[in-house]
Amino acid sequence: MLILGIDTSCDDTSAAVVEDGGRIVSNIVSGQSDIHMKYGGIVPELASRRHIEMIVPVVEEALEKAGLPLTGLSAVAVCHGPGLIGSLLIGCSFAKALCYSAGIPLVAVNHLEGHILSPFLDARPPEFPFLSLIVSGGHTSLFVAEAAGRYREIGRTRDDAAGEAYDKVSKLLGLGYPGGPIIDRLAGDGDPASIDFPRAYLPGTLDFSFSGLKTAVLNFLRTQSGSAARGAAALPPATVSDVAASFQKAVVDVLVRKTEWAIKKMGIRSVAISGGVAANSELRRRMKEMAGDRGAEIFIPAVPLCTDNAAMIAAAGRHHLTEGDIAGPDLNPRAYLPL
């Protein structure tokens, strides 16, 4: 069973061919970070315009690399949300037209389901049930994945996503976009114990909160430079690295601790982590360490499969197809789409 996946939920246009929900035949991701870098964020108009330019070449490359004609596909799986509405529209419209013209079935996949099932693209996938932590620029949620298509949310952020905190703090520090890799790199030169930023553990729940941390960084910068507007320009590089390291430590402390609580509370010892922040070196290291202490098994896909990609959409599309959950030409994307 060969499925073409398409994802245009955010800044990357991606297309992939995946066999039987796990073997990647091709996976093409058009990095757009070069144009977004100067804006300090994902700018929707730019993103949608780029998606229009990229969608045909990216899909063609995915099929070519797979050595497949359109008619060789069992189905097309497209991400219909959550994400930026203008960007999602391009992927959905394209996929609908493609399926209509080639006479192949279309299935709709929630972006979050794609992330949850992304570990199945690795050589050693987890077994159900497992805990899934999705941590990215748009999401920070904990799920129990009971089976393909059966997910229970047990915690989520009440305000900002962890990756969003990274991007906002990066902007406050006058650094670039995306904030995750830049702060991760700078943190290596800083002292994580130098500034005691707050950690919102929210005892008794598996929810997250990163808004207070972002505000604490802003207030710290205000007291340091006398003005947030001047931001990091007024700070010595060593202080910037210390802020990066201390901020990163606060984020990772919370993510690791709450995942540890989830393991204990749910009695599930397999944990998958995905989303852009799962590419963070410190998070990967600390999660593996925690899992070792707890006797749990951790499944983190390779970095290109943590960040947005269409292979995970194609992988998740399989069970929709086998269950006959086919999308019609009336499929509409949604910016806000709870799983």
Partner: peptide, 10 residues
């Protein structure tokens, strides 16, 4: 929650 990422939450 924060809508910074999706810009619009409907």
């Amino acid at each position: 929650t924060s809508a910074s990422f999706t810009i619009i939450a409907e």
